[in-house]
Design a protein around this nucleic acid. Structure first.
Lengths: 224, 224
DNA sequence: GTTAATTTTTAGTCTTCCCTAAAACAACTG
DNA sequence: CAGTTGTTTTAGGGAAGACTAAAAATTAAC
């Protein structure tokens, strides 16, 4: 087995790689809240372990072995989030913190049982896709709400899961994965709020001004 | 928070104290599978933390603060075992190993939700009592099957949970907490097997010779 | 009651793991 | 090419936990 730190680094490489072309030392340092020097040290260790390839001054990339571990951890994380939410009623803004701990101790057997009990869910409570048991993972890159033009109809696809306050805010607006909405007004490339009308759920019909930061972390898919 | 090692030591002190008058260095060393010198070192640390009282060459005892932590960990452990067994169908010989990991990462919130979901169970799958939310714990000391005389009728109360093989063996004989049985023959103070007739469950009517080691780890309560 | 055997403690080391600050270095920018 | 930015190296630290070997205290044996 690997240490939690190793798993956290691999997960971070995978997650940063989702949006960035190259995974840099400083990006990892920022995400993991450690110094760049620490990252260099750990990354060299991971390279020796053949979990990443590492080119000085360029960046890091996962090897197949490393990717397997990263996706395994992500699967654990998202499955646990889903389980806590669905089976135990843990609010969606709390599941992330708990899953951060559980992801490192979950056995494959219990993982499979949770998956079964939930009916093989495909997405966690924040909309993120759960990797398959065979560790396939396709992460679509939905556009953020912040970039939608006025008049667009869209459905909430995913909300960033790492900021509980953001989640409580967004949840308070009635915006969850699957919720349909219409963009009333938007200020593209500025940092103003996006006004939306909620078309679904318990806030159906309500109009809300969604702050820019939230709109940048709330991803939607277009509706034709 | 405390480290896993600290929690493990406190739990071990609590569990040894259940049967032994004094908790010795060597008993802890044996249970935790470390050298006696290591135990002395850690115990001194725990004493500084005011989690145990410690008298050189005599033994260790939990303080109230230490006992609270120990019982909290035991509550986590047994609740998780019960949850895994009841809610996820994990076999009773596997729950212990998983709970050993989970007990250190379970939040109070999720603990309460598991307790609720299970309807506030009082005993884990091996029959051991689950401490209450207010951390009260009474551990009755049932006699082992090995000490029952021929002709006695009894009900299985508890089975030691730390040896999966033993649990599979005992389970294979149809002996679970709550199972009624009658002692057919017994060799007191020797190490021969105890022959029992199962009066309950899927092996009802069957007669089994229970090996001495198993009979020493299987505890029963008398039936008048 | 002395000696012998057993436990326990001291004392000193080691390993693992991860982190940091500061200096040196490479790569881009204009 | 000179400066800025980001990265790596160097050098070091410290927490956590465990170990060995030898000394000390306790207990048991004669």
């Amino acid at each position: 087995m690997h240490t939690s730190a190793v798993e956290d680094y691999l997960k971070a490489v995978c997650e940063i790689g989702r949006t960035e072309e190259t995974v840099t030392t400083s990006a990892l340092a920022a995400r993991l809240d450690v110094s760049p020097a620490s990252v260099t040290g750990m990354v060299k260790k991971l390279a020796v372990m053949k979990l990443v390839t590492y080119e000085r001054y360029y960046g890091v990339a996962l090897t197949n072995a490393g990717r397997r571990i990263a996706i395994e951890v992500i699967r654990h994380h998202r499955l646990v989030e889903t389980y806590l939410h669905e089976a135990l009623g843990v609010p969606w803004d709390e599941v992330h913190a708990e899953a951060e701990k559980w992801e490192h101790v979950l056995s494959e057997d219990v993982e499979a049982r949770m998956d079964e009990a939930l009916g093989h869910p495909t997405n966690d409570p924040h909309g993120a896709p759960i990797p398959t048991p065979t560790l396939e993972l396709v992460e679509p890159d939905w556009p953020p709400l912040a970039r939608m033009d006025a008049g667009t109809k869209a459905v909430v696809a995913e909300v960033s899961d790492d900021d509980p306050e953001l989640l409580r805010y967004v949840g308070g607006l009635g915006l969850y994965p699957g919720t349909a909405l219409e963009v009333i007004s938007s200020a593209p490339y500025s940092d103003g709020p996006v006004t939306v009308r909620v078309l679904d759920g318990d806030q159906r019909g309500a109009e809300h001004a969604v702050g820019h930061r939230a709109a940048a972390h709330l991803f939607v898919r277009d509706v034709k």
